[in-house]
Write a protein that binds this DNA or RNA. Sequence first.
DNA 1: CTGCGACCTGAAGTCAGCTTCAAGTCAAGG
DNA 2: CCTTGACTTGAAGCTGACTTCAGGTCGCAG
Lengths: 156, 156
Amino acid sequence: MDARDLLTIGELARRSGFSPSALRYYEREGLLRASRTSGGQRRYERSVLRRLAFIRAARTIGVGLEEVRHILDTLPEARTPTRADWSRLSRSWRGRLDEQIQALVALRDGLDSCIGCGCLSLQRCRLSNPEDQVAEHGPGARLLPPMLRRTPAQGA
Amino acid sequence: MDARDLLTIGELARRSGFSPSALRYYEREGLLRASRTSGGQRRYERSVLRRLAFIRAARTIGVGLEEVRHILDTLPEARTPTRADWSRLSRSWRGRLDEQIQALVALRDGLDSCIGCGCLSLQRCRLSNPEDQVAEHGPGARLLPPMLRRTPAQGA
DNA sequence: CTGCGACCTGAAGTCAGCTTCAAGTCAAGG
DNA sequence: CCTTGACTTGAAGCTGACTTCAGGTCGCAG
C-alpha cells in the first residue's frame, strides 16, 4: 500500500512482458485498473502482475480479450485474489484445451485418410468438406494462429 | 474444355462453399485463375474445385493465404495437377499438424502443473512466462483461432 | 530550476481475410 | 427486344488486438 510498492507503467511493462501501449489498451477494455498520481500517471499494484500472467496464459491458449474480461470479472473485487481464486480460473481451461487438442487430432486423422488417395474430394474429405462442423463458422475463421505459423520475419 | 464444362462464379461458390467475394479475393491474391467470357465474366475450370478443396483444408489447419499461394505455386502449370501432386502437398501438412498438436499438449501439461499451485508465477509458470519460446512472437499472437473459440453469435 | 526521459491523450494506422456497397454490365428465358 | 438475376469493378468497411504518432505533461536527479 506504500507508494513505493506501486509500479509505473514502464516497470510493469518490463516485468510482465506486455508493452505499455498494450497495458493502456487493456485498461481501456476494462481488463486492468490502475490508480493515478496527482499528475495523472498510472500506478499499478503488484497483484496486477498475476492478473497479467493470467491474461497472458489465456491469450496463449487462444482466449479472446472479451472472454478474459468476463472471467476476470468473476474475481472478488473486495480483496486481492488468492491462489485458490486463480487456481479455480485456470482449472476451467483444462477442459477447453483438451477440446482444442481433440479437434486438431481429429483434423490430423482426417488428413491421414486423405493423404493416401490425394483426393481432397469435396464429398468425402473431412478436411475439405464445407458441410463439416468445423468449417463455415464465419468470416476469417482460422484454426491455428500466427503464433504457431511460420513467421517469415524473425524466424528463430 | 467445352464451354459447358466451365463454371460461373456462382456455381463455383455453391459447390466449393466459398463465397463469390472470397473467390474474387483469392483471384486478386493470386491463388486462383479464371478465364473470361467475351463480356468479362469469370469462367472456372473444374479442377479449380480441387484447388479450392486444398485451400479450404489449408485454411482449416491454419495456413495463411500467402503460404498457401507459395505452396500452390509449386504445382505444375502446364498440366492439370494429378492426385499424386495433391497428395504430395497434403503430406507436408502432417508434420506441421503434429507440431501444432505437440505445442498444445505441452501447453496443457504446463497448465496442469500450474493448477495445483494457482501460482501463475512469472518466474516459474510456463503458461505465463514471457521468456518462453511460445510467447512474444509479435503482436496479436494467438495460439488458437476464432474457429475453435466459443462464438457468442450463432452458437451451435 | 532546469533538463530529460518517462509518461499522458486521442486519433489514426496495421494486419488478415474477407464482406459490403454503389453503380453499372452481361446472359439467357420468354 | 426486354426483363431479371447473376455478374462486374473499385473502394470502403469490418474484427481483434494492438501499435504508432503528434503534441503536450510529469517527475526527479543534478
